[in-house]
């Protein structure tokens, strides 16, 4: 039933998708399409913006308005769209390389600026499309094609950064926890202000292979094992957090989004202009 209703939001002629067997992107893509269907979003008023990378190809399969932009810049493009036409639903689909790494600066400012845009980030912990290089979310010690002897940098916790930078709704789940994913997506897509759903995803071809995490099935099971509810994660002693991923809602605030604040600026400008005219 749900699959059928998501169909109008998919470009069926472009399916099957080009992602590798065992990749988590298809799960996230279908969850996004389902969310659009459940919310009944008009296709004419929905815009998806992607950057570059594996998940940056998600727009090829979505039958809504779409911009496939430049690497890391999806949120900056989305900002222009939403600011120019606040009546649109604007969703940015990015990977960790796109959002957290190349686009890190835009991500911070999108959280802070607080336009009503939803960022959906497929975090597979590496640059999958270009051969498994490390990204900003690659955990320390991991093997990647550019850190064959172990990664010397620490991974970025995108959700904590987003919450600290002022995002209104922030949640993380994994491709294993599809029901949570559906729920978080719906909450994010209907939340005023900037929202983020980070989805931990599997890349069996690069990150999984380099780090001996097994095939698609083992990687999927691993998400079930390492995911710890946020509250529980907080209670864990530091050494036990190693290798685990906190899932849950990191921020859920109600606040005035940019569009509303800016409308007042525009009204003030009109008032000032009217005053100027009447003084003459």
């Amino acid at each position: 039933m749900l699959v059928t209703s998501a169909r109008p939001y998919l470009v069926e002629r472009n399916l099957p998708h080009f992602w590798c067997p065992g990749c988590g992107n298809g799960i996230i893509l279908s969850a996004v399409a389902r969310a659009f269907a459940r919310l009944g979003w008009e296709r004419t008023r929905t815009v998806v913006v992607t950057g570059i990378g594996c998940f940056g190809r998600a727009d090829d399969y979505l039958n809504v308005n779409a911009v496939h932009g430049t690497h890391g810049r999806a949120l900056a493009i989305a900002t222009g769209i939403k600011a120019a036409n606040p009546g649109l639903h604007v969703v940015a689909l990015m990977g960790d390389g796109d959002c957290a790494t190349i686009g890190g600066n835009h991500f911070l400012h999108a959280c802070r600026r607080n336009l009503t845009i939803t960022a959906v980030v497929a975090n597979n912990l590496n640059y999958g499309m270009t051969g498994g290089q490390y990204s900003a979310t690659t955990p320390a010690g991991s093997t990647t094609s550019t850190s064959p002897l172990g990664h010397a940098e620490s991974g970025l916790d995108l959700c904590r950064v987003a919450a600290a930078a002022g995002a209104m709704y922030v949640a993380r789940t994994t491709v294993y926890h599809v029901h949570l994913l559906d729920r978080y997506l719906e909450a994010a897509l209907t939340h005023p202000g900037f929202s983020l759903v980070e989805v931990m995803s599997s890349c069996p071809v690069y990150f999984g292979r380099y780090n001996r995490l097994g095939g698609p099935v083992e990687m999927m099971e691993r998400w079930r094992k390492v995911a710890v509810p946020l509250e529980k994660y907080g209670e864990l002693p530091e050494p036990e957090r190693e290798g685990r991923v906190a899932v849950g809602v990191f921020a859920d605030h109600r606040g005035e989004p940019f569009e509303e604040r800016y409308r007042r600026v525009q009204e003030a400008a009109r008032g000032a202009r009217a005053g100027e005219v009447s003084e003459r």
Binding site: V47, V49, V67, G69, T70, R73, A76, I77, A78, T79, G80, I81, K82, A83, A84, N85, L88, N105, H106, L108, H109, Y262, Q266
Partner: peptide, 29 residues
């Protein structure tokens, strides 16, 4: 004029937002 002014975080973002605004129907510069 009913326009929108945005000072983006850098000029990479400014140019990206310009493209977005134009696609959303605004004359942008």
């Amino acid at each position: 004029m009913g326009g929108v002014y945005l000072q983006m975080e850098d000029e990479i973002a400014s140019m990206a937002a310009l493209v977005g605004a134009s696609l959303a129907g605004a004359r942008s510069f």
